[in-house]
Design a protein around this nucleic acid. Structure first.
Lengths: 209, 209
DNA sequence: ACAAAAGTGTTAAAATTACACCCATGG
DNA sequence: CCATGGGTGTAATTTTAACACTTTTGT
């Protein structure tokens, strides 16, 4: 008998905090649950962790349940484990939360999956509201300090506007453009220029070294 | 059928990084494994997480395997999840690492369990050497910033000497006494005095607010 | 010309770092 | 009185923060 079959452990799920950079800065992907419990409710995409499966692989699989293809994923990382015994009505289930950075994905059906800003989150199934509340400061702390996370989120090239929006959306407060520009000068490199946004002076693009 | 029984998930263990403040600063408790695999080898105390069991409870239970009574535990907290599929020869097993701060425990048999400094760690079973290496900077980061962790580790009253030793043992480098004193002035409060250590000028004791 | 957005400069405050010097105790 | 360890002071550097001013674009 093996360790994987002879013990009565909690089930283990991986709940994905799928992030992209949108108009409101960092946005979270939520989808409507197809199965019970909480069928039809908005929730973070989650899967049960398979035997021997890596957490990052499970997180990508979870993002897939909301329509995200593995090719659209730029990075994954673990966050916090939630172990409250009654968080799942089916029985004790651990939730390992993980961030998944995604680029270029738009849900086909906005009734089934959609991007939401951190300020406009609807009520979510399970303890997912709590998960997002707990996880937001962790993400804010990683920003501009954990370069793996930050680069995955921003993509290879990004504007100062993007940087400002992402920071504000995760920290909840405004940041100074000049100061953030100096931070970028320390940790990133400039490339060409860009405007496209329309009005105003075009800004530089930043890349990761 | 419930979520806890119908899936083929990895087993979940909680491995305790049991810490105390000793002569070398923060020290880790290791014990000899009683069962296979790695029977007789030094390892972190670990347990399989029971269904519905809290991670902190499992961590205390794990510390108990090395002889620590629950009453000696001052605090517990989760650290990192290790998910490498071959880390346990019995089969895929997650390891949730957790810190456990302990006061006033001395192993009865030094051949079965002992406190070791971070510099003098013997080879450990499983990936436990790797776990400690990964976890040390996380603990160093928590020190003097996560007050729950710090207070549990130092105990209610501690000297500057203790503070210095703990910092050096976790960061690996020396800290300035004057500067650390000022940090304490910001986050803690003084009480009376103490010497007992013998030689040298007696120092103040610090307490948590 | 004007508004909007980006770039740069300046300055004050705070934190970090590295020392230096003086004080209290045991032997 | 001297070695050992503790407390306080100081100064240079770096980081953080807040704000002002200039530049480039579209309308």
């Amino acid at each position: 008998m093996t360790a994987a079959t002879d013990i009565a452990s909690s089930a283990v799920s991986v709940d994905a905090v799928v992030l992209r950079v949108g108009a409101d800065g960092a946005e979270v992907l939520i989808h409507r649950r197809a199965a019970e419990p909480f069928a039809g409710d908005w929730a973070l995409p989650g899967v049960l962790l398979g035997a021997g499966e890596r957490i990052s692989d499970a997180a990508i699989r979870a993002a897939g349940k909301a329509g995200v293809s593995a090719a659209a994923v730029d990075g994954v990382g673990q966050l916090v484990v939630f172990d409250e015994p009654h968080r799942d009505p089916r029985g004790p289930t651990l939730s390992i939360s993980a961030w998944v950075a995604v680029r270029g994905f738009e849900p086909s059906d906005p009734e089934t999956a959609r991007w939401v800003s951190w300020e406009a989150l609807p009520p979510l199934a399970f303890d997912h509201t709590r998960i997002l509340a707990d996880v937001r400061p962790v993400l804010a702390d990683k920003l501009w300090r954990d370069l793996t996370f930050t680069a995955a989120l921003t993509g290879s090239e990004f504007s100062v506007r993007t940087a400002l929006d992402v920071t504000r959306s995760l920290t909840g407060s405004d940041v100074d453009r000049g100061n953030l520009n100096r931070t970028l000068k320390r940790i990133a490199v400039r490339s060409d220029r860009e405007s496209s946004s329309g009005v105003g002076r075009p800004g530089a693009l930043w890349r990761w070294p």
